[in-house]
Design a protein around this nucleic acid. Structure first.
Lengths: 197, 197, 197, 197
DNA sequence: AATGAATGAGAGTTCATTCAT
DNA sequence: GATGAATGAACTCTCATTCAT
């Protein structure tokens, strides 16, 4: 379908994705295309040759991230201890997110069909990880895959409020939240889970 | 110090604050002053008569919110059951935040001295609420006020990802997170708490 | 024709003219009406009650100045020494202008019919002062009233370039220019005088 | 250091400088960037691509003018007749200024370091021209370079008051003022010269 | 394929002027 | 008569996007 890029074009594409991820992480969605191009060491026009709009560039970054998560998820579905596997998945996700904060991805709306697709795939993986963990008694009975999907980004989110925080601070809040997901000492939940995502 | 506004001016100020809160909630910090003015049904110039800069407008909104929280916090410091009081405080905070999502407040940096002051006050109140709850065995020993401050906004944050969600969905995640704060079934935390905020 | 102002209105008018002259002198034509009102200690609306537009306010100031000049001119037409009288007139004009720089008046275009009228009157006075001086051999034969009118503001203009200059520096340049108007050592002029003003 | 502009960019830069000089001459410093762009036949954004701020644009124009003056000044320092050289310099300066009135340059404050530098250079040149002329008895003993710098712009200034004047009218007033600088018939000056500029 | 010059819509902000109080 | 709140046009400047080179 898509023919392979010329070697230099492929290289530029890679440079651009990296530069854009860095810029977006530092400046948020307001990072300018000009700055991204400069950081990548290419002309502004080249950005638009590779990504028709700024949003497309964003979508490509998000796609990369979710793809990586999906790979980790698939692997962990095979793990021996389902509870540990789920915690490991959340750890991988938070670690990845810590590398470069892309929390604004949510603001970016629907982005692309392709992003929607891999995101759905990722959601499916999480659901299966959670189902397995629940069956093994590692998470409480009243918690669903959708719950975990939503809570997944919370550790990074809450630590983003602390200016000079240790880069590993998210581990603390992932632990607290994961404790909240365990069966021990669980109180009944006052509201049913959402159907989606 | 500041004499009372004329009736119509006071009304416009109120309209503006409401319109701005709505716009900011919907569009984030990038909401334009022009749109806010249109939504409030006033001219663009009127916005700047009431709030010298866009940031001042933002600060005024944030100030209102934190003030309300402070009032609730002071009241709950007198409550009989410290554990219930802390949960109630978090419930009030999340409920308020659900009304209009102002999660972007964090992006807005220091805003005003006044905001910094009432925020510090709020932080202090939370610390005291948490201390009381911990002493009564309502929250685990290794959790601090700073932890709660950071986790406070998480319930709203995670539910903001669900497009057509029930407006009360946050209650579910507050419950899960609060379960994570309880002493029962607590696992040791892998990272020390932050010093600030 | 114009009925007398109420006492307080007259007072406000005077305050406004003074405040406006000061502001214009300090900030140039870009001085804001709001600042003028504040300086005069009245509301912004009051400015427009007295002067329909900002330009009208400017015209009123200019009118005052030219009126004062006219009075001086009329008086000096009676003086015994026509050469000294002309120099005295130019000294008065420059001194007045030094008090508050209104050089921008020229930028302000035609202003008002009334200004045009008193300005014409002033021009006429200068012509007569020059004619008398020329007849007495105090100024060179090839110099006209129009020439003097044009050169009249030059001393203030050139000193306005010196930031912290002595307020009397204009006297030096008036002296030099006046020496250029004298018959002694005059070289023929390369261009005929203008017809107006 | 700065590599040459692309052909079309260089052309636009030239068009912009010309259009800006015209607009500034006609409307003063308040000329709008939009009008300048329209006059140059380019988009508004193009102005800011070439000149980061409106002030930079102004500085570029001023720089051009002063550079040209400096060239003339250097050349005239070599001239045989120092008195004629000074008069010629003032003639060149006034002629240049007549082309497009940039008297507002003074209002523009310090502009750029670079402007400050070439201006200082120009001042130095004038001082030397005046010193030579004074030594040759072509100008009076009590006149300094600073005096001439200040008086330099007066001929254009005074003629700017005459609406439909001959474009060469300034020659008349330069002649009168220069006569005032000559030793013949000089009266003592009532005020010492300024130290700067 | 890559560049960066050009574009113009739109941002925040100012201010002369109008008008309800 | 006096006030200052409201207005909206105009300002400088930014930036995603297009297109000639």
């Amino acid at each position: 379908m898509t023919r392979p890029l010329r070697a230099d074009a492929a290289r530029n594409r890679r440079l651009l994705l990296a530069a854009a991820a860095d810029e977006f992480a530092e400046r948020g969605l307001d990072a300018s295309v000009a700055d991204i191009a400069r950081r990548a060491g290419v002309g502004k026009g080249t950005v638009f040759r590779h990504f028709a709009t700024k949003d497309d560039l964003l979508a490509a970054i998000v796609l990369d991230r979710i793809d990586a998560l999906n790979a980790a998820g698939e692997r962990l579905l095979e793990a021996a201890d389902p509870g540990a596997a789920l915690l490991e998945f959340l750890t991988v996700a938070a670690h990845q997110r810590q590398q470069r904060d892309l929390s604004f991805l949510q603001e970016a709306g629907e982005l692309t069909e392709e992003v929607t697709k891999v995101r759905a795939q990722m959601f499916h993986t999480v659901h299966r990880l959670v189902d397995r963990a629940r069956e093994h008694g590692a998470v409480r009975a009243d918690v669903t895959g959708a719950d975990v999907i939503l809570l997944m980004c919370a550790p990074n989110y809450v630590t983003s409020y602390v200016p000079g925080a240790s880069p590993d601070l998210w581990q603390r809040y992932l632990a607290i939240i994961f404790d909240g997901l365990r069966p021990e000492g669980a109180h009944p939940l006052p509201h049913p889970p959402p159907l989606t995502p």
